[in-house]
Amino acid sequence: MRVLIADDDPVMRMLLSAVIDADPQLDLVGAAEDATEAIRLATAHTPDVVLLDVEMPGGGGQHAAREIKASRPATRVLALSAHEDGPARDEMRDAGADGYVIKGTPPAEIAKALRGD
């Protein structure tokens, strides 16, 4: 399964990359630092799933989710946030996100969410 991640925090990108690299069913095809780059990489690499930070430069996860879903409706989009609930969750769902992952979730659970298990 081809995975694209997008988070403005380089440490978070490194941690998510390690989670993906550790799972033989997942293949990291790109790591973006903002929404604009996430949209560009999604177009270039046609991932099966995109994990988008809700709060990042370039319009945030909502902007990236809308653009990615508009051009690639079959791509699953998962929101990534430090907040368990609140308006961000609703905004990402309204933007087309298929799921929601909380930062700090154990690596095995993140991999499971990416695989769609």
Rank of each mutant, 00 (worst) to 15 (best):
K112C: 11
L16F: 15
E55R: 13
D48E: 14
D27T: 14
L80M: 12
D21V: 12
K69L: 12
V54A: 14
A70P: 02
L41C: 04
T36H: 05
I102H: 00
D27G: 07
A35K: 01
V11C: 01
D34M: 10
I110D: 01
A82E: 12
D85R: 14
E37A: 15
A113Q: 11
V77E: 01
A95K: 00
L16G: 04
G99D: 09
R66H: 13
R89Q: 09
A113V: 03
L41F: 01
R93T: 14
L26T: 09
A35P: 03
A18L: 11
A70Q: 09
R89F: 02
G58D: 06
A65P: 02
M14P: 04
L41P: 00
V19S: 05
D8M: 00
L51G: 03
E37N: 07
T46D: 14
A22P: 05
V101L: 13
V3G: 02
I5K: 05
M56R: 11
D98K: 08
E37K: 13
V29A: 07
L41Y: 00
A22G: 13
R72D: 11
V101A: 03
M92G: 04
R76D: 06
R66D: 02
A6D: 07
D7I: 07
M56Q: 07
T105H: 09
S81H: 07
K69R: 13
R40G: 08
R93F: 14
P24K: 10
D9A: 13
D27E: 11
A113W: 05
V49W: 03
L4R: 02
D94F: 15
A111C: 04
R93L: 11
R93M: 10
D117M: 11
E55L: 13
A42Y: 03
L15N: 07
A111N: 06
A44Y: 08
H63Y: 15
T105Q: 04
D85K: 13
E37F: 02
P57D: 08
A18K: 08
G58S: 09
D9V: 10
A70V: 03
I20T: 02
I39Q: 02
L4M: 10
A111G: 15
S17L: 07
D34R: 08
G116S: 06
V29R: 03
A18Y: 00
L16C: 10
Q25P: 03
D98E: 05
S81P: 04
P24R: 12
D53E: 12
P24D: 15
M1L: 12
E67P: 09
A42N: 07
D53K: 02
L114K: 14
P47W: 03
R115M: 08
M14F: 15
L28G: 04
R2G: 09
R115I: 02
R13V: 08
E84P: 12
G99Q: 04
P87E: 14
V77C: 04
H45G: 11
E33K: 15
V77Y: 09
I20D: 00
T75L: 06
S71W: 03
V101M: 07
D53Q: 05
T43R: 15
L78W: 05
A31K: 01
Q25L: 15
D23T: 12
A64E: 01
